[in-house]
Design a protein around this nucleic acid. Structure first.
Lengths: 218, 218
DNA sequence: AATTAAATTTAGACAAATCTAAAAATATGT
DNA sequence: ACATATTTTTAGATTTGTCTAAATTTAATT
């Protein structure tokens, strides 16, 4: 597998999400910052390798083989992210770029040993689940902070937006995974919320609340 | 810099060795298992980037900029080798292949943090020196075991041949870096030697003796 | 249902890195 | 020194992954 092929497979996996629908070449082109015609070319190659189902003009989706391939790449990406944060003191807004490179290193032994060194972590620094060696992964039972009712309570378990700017904002306000959040109030007008974390009270916009994943506590 | 460019620069550095002489396209082609015409093409590109001096039909050599580039790549390669052995329990005959990939990861912070994690090692698992961040490196004061006189003594500090087959041979006979070797006898006919390591006596061929580096003790 | 708009594919081109085969330059041997 | 052998370069082709522009298919609209 070439690096380009791996990047396409990974992108298709992310665009598929939960439900099984066909992905358009346009959507992939947009996501990967490339042209639809390039996606068409690659689609033919990936279909030849039986990594995707591809019907001209209709769209494409991963085969079982493609899905396994995607999960192997994502496993590597997320394990490297944990390594960078836990062992090399990278902050969670710096890891993506480097992990994008490291995920393409070809050595089964290497990634298994990294897994072992990290004591088999289940989640990456952004709260995303790490697939096991055999491609299984348990998505956490989580909701968006914006879905928590007033006087609801939950633990912050992940971020939806993983852009450095959002992550740095959270750092600045000492919002990190594992902290408990209480919803004190919500403004109907703009959906902004008043919350409490570690005895500190905050006012956060709806844009923040729709990008924080919470494990509801009661 | 592309991966191919980096591999050429690295190979040229290794072929130059100590003295400053021009490297032939043929020599590079042989070393890299490619064709001389491909080397010529790349030579033009590297000369354009001022990484090498290149005179048609005469040969090529690294510029100061090229040398710095080579040392940066070699630094990464050797640090990753130490990481694999010290932190992930790879054996010294498995690390080269993986380090060949890891050396191309582009992140200054990453390699500096790996350096720190390893406590700034000076030598890689095969005894080769690791260049510092600013491209300095101290070659050890070493000789080949074959150059040690009878009843001479020294510490094994490196290997010349780093092929898995040679390294596995050494493992099998419990010859490792850091052990002290005494030369008990030498056979004039085939240059084979009788040596002692850790109270065990060995008979080794000249081919072995010319691939083990020794720091002479007296 | 016909026309227009949007999405997708094809055709042809390009850059990087490689190759083969032929041409040019350098080295060797008597 | 001249002929031959070797080395090196050029020219043209190939593969991978990309692009633009044109053609085709599908979707939307009146």
């Amino acid at each position: 597998m070439t690096r380009a092929e791996e990047n396409y497979i990974k992108t298709i996996f992310h665009l598929e999400g939960e439900d099984t629908h066909l992905i358009s070449t346009n959507a992939i082109a947009e996501e990967m910052d490339t042209k639809p015609s390039s996606v068409t070319d690659m689609a033919k190659k990936l279909a030849d390798k039986e990594l995707i189902h591809y019907v001209k003009y209709q769209g494409l989706s991963l085969t079982e083989k493609g899905r396994r391939t995607a999960l192997a790449i994502i496993r590597k990406h997320r394990l490297w992210e944990v390594f960078l944060v836990d062992k090399l003191d990278f902050s969670w807004d710096e890891v993506h770029e480097v992990a994008e490179q490291l995920e393409h290193i070809k050595s089964e032994k290497l990634i298994d040993k990294i897994d072992e060194l990290l004591d088999f972590p289940k989640y990456d620094p952004h709260g995303d689940p790490i697939p096991t060696k055999d491609g299984k992964f348990q998505e956490r039972d989580k909701i968006l902070l914006s879905e928590l009712p007033i006087s609801g309570k939950g633990v912050c378990v992940g971020v939806k937006d993983t852009s450095p700017s959002f992550l740095k904002f959270l750092d600045k306000n000492h919002i990190a995974l594992g902290h408990t959040i209480y919803v004190l109030d919500r403004e109907a007008f703009d959906e902004s919320m008043k919350i409490e974390i570690d005895d500190r009270q905050f006012h956060i916009s709806n844009q923040i609340a729709t990008n924080l994943y919470i494990k509801q506590l009661n």
